[in-house]
Nucleic acid binder design. Structure first.
Lengths: 221, 221
DNA sequence: GAGCCGCTCGACACCGTGTCGAGTACCGTG
DNA sequence: CACGGTACTCGACACGGTGTCGAGCGGCTC
C-alpha cells in the first residue's frame, strides 16, 4: 500500500525510467487498477477507465505504461515478491517440527493469494495472453519448486523420507497442485475445497507424497 | 474428424438449431478453427479468419455461430466427451490390478489432451473470459472428482487405503494437480515434467496420497 | 408463378487500442 | 529576464475487430 520508493532508478520491469515527478500519477494508475479489479474482471476494464480513474487522459496513460497488461504486471511484481518472501520465511522458521514447517510454507502462499484475490484472478486471465506474465509466473513457480525439491532431498538424505521419483519432479507436481487448488478455491470455481479445509488437505497430500505418512518424524528411524 | 451427425436436432450447446443443409458450412468452420488453432493462438484468430477459411463472409459466420468462442466451445464439447469416456473405460477395465487401474485412468486423460494440445491451449485462454467454457470445464472436472472420490472410498472400505481427509477433498486436489501439470507440460511452459515422466510422477503422488505407498495391494491385510 | 425459407453478404455503427503532433508549464542556465 | 530544453498533457486520428441490419437470391412447394 505505502512503500514510497525513495528514488529507485532501476525499473525492474520494462515499464519506464522513473522520474521524481509524475510519480504520483504512476501510483494513481496503480491504485486505480487495484481498485477497479476489486469491482470487475480485467477484460472489462479499459485503458480509458484506468486513465480517468487516475485523473488523466488516455494518451497520457501511455506515457506511464505501455499497456493495460503492464499495469497488472507491475502490481503482480509486488505480490509475487511478497509471496516468495513470506514462504521462504515460513520455511526458515519452525526448523524443528517438520510438519509445522511444511504447513507454514503452505499457509504463507495461501495467505498471500487470499489477500490479493482480485489481482490473482487478473493474472490468471493474462496468463493466456501475456508472455511477460507467463515468464513472471514461471519464475515464481520455479523458485517454489527449487525450494521444495531441496527440502525433499534433505529429508531423504537424513532418512526421514523414502526414495522415489526425482525430488524435483514431485516438487513440480505438488506446487502446481497448490497453485490450481488455491486458485479455484478463492476464485469461487468448482470443484473446489472449503476455504477452511484447504491447508489440511494440501498438507496431507504433501506429507503423504514426501513421507508416505501423515505424521513424519514420529515413527521413522 | 469424421462423425457425420445424421440429423441430430438437439444442439446440446446453445449454438443454434441445426438444419439439414448448411451443415457442411458448420463443419467447415469447425475444421478451419481446428486447423488455425494448430498454427496460432486463439486471440490471434479473428472471426474473419474463420469465415474466410470456411469460404464464407463474416456476417454469414454469425448465421452459424454466435461468436468465436462458441466455435471453440463446440470443438471442446467433443474432446471433453472423449476424455470422459476414455477415462471411464480405463477405470472399468483392469479391475484386478489396482495400480494398473489408476495408471490407466491417468493415461487416458493424458492421451486425450496430448492429442488435442492446440484446442486445450485455446480452452485455457477462454477459461478466463468465457463463463460457458468455465462451466464446461467445471463439469468435466466434477465428473473426474466424483469418480475418483468413489474409487478412494471403495479402497478405504475394503481396507486397502488408510483413512484421512474426506475422499472428495483428496480427489479435488489430485485432479486439479493433473489438470495443471498436464497442461503446463504439453503447453511447453515451466516448470514442467518431461513428457515421458509425466504419468510415473503423477501416479506416485496419487498412490502415496491414497494408500501411503507406491505398491498398493501387496502389503496390506 | 407466388410465396416462403434457408442462406448470403455489403454496408454500417460501435468500441477499444495505440500513435502523432501540437501544445503547456516549469526548469536551469546565460 | 529571456531562452531552450525537458517533462508532461491531450485532441484528433487511424486502425482493427465485433456484431447487426436489411436487401437480395436461389430453390422448393403448393
Amino acid at each position: 500500500m505505502a512503500a514510497p520508493l525513495p528514488a529507485a532508478p532501476g525499473g525492474s520491469r520494462g515499464r519506464r525510467a522513473r522520474r521524481p515527478s509524475g510519480d504520483d500519477r504512476e501510483r494513481a494508475i496503480l491504485a486505480t487498477a487495484e481498485d477497479l479489479l476489486g469491482q470487475r474482471p480485467l477484460p472489462d476494464i479499459s485503458v480509458d477507465d484506468l486513465a480517468r480513474g487516475a485523473g488523466i487522459s488516455r494518451p497520457t496513460f501511455y506515457f506511464y505504461f505501455p499497456s493495460k497488461d503492464a499495469v497488472v504486471l507491475a502490481l503482480l511484481d509486488r505480490v509475487v515478491e511478497e509471496a516468495r518472501e513470506s514462504r521462504s520465511a515460513a520455511l526458515r522458521r519452525a526448523g524443528d517440527d517438520v510438519r509445522a514447517s511444511w504447513r507454514g510454507a503452505l499457509e504463507a502462499v495461501r495467505g498471500t493469494f487470499a489477500a490479493h484475490r482480485a489481482l490473482t484472478a487478473a493474472a490468471a486471465s493474462l496468463l493466456a495472453t501475456s508472455a511477460e506474465v507467463r515468464v513472471l509466473w514461471a519464475a515464481i513457480m520455479d523458485g517454489f519448486v527449487e525450494e521444495t525439491a531441496a527440502a525433499i532431498e534433505a529429508e531423504r538424505a537424513r532418512g526421514a523420507a523414502p526414495a522415489g521419483p526425482p525430488a524435483r519432479d514431485l516438487a513440480v507436481a505438488l506446487n502446481w497442485m497448490n497453485e490450481r487448488v488455491i486458485h479455484v478455491t478463492y476464485a469461487g470455481q468448482t470443484p473446489a475445497l472449503a476455504e477452511d479445509d484447504l491447508i489440511d488437505v494440501l498438507l496431507t497430500v504433501w506429507l503423504r507424497t514426501v513421507y508416505g505418512t501423515d505424521t513424519p518424524g514420529t515413527a521413522p528411524a
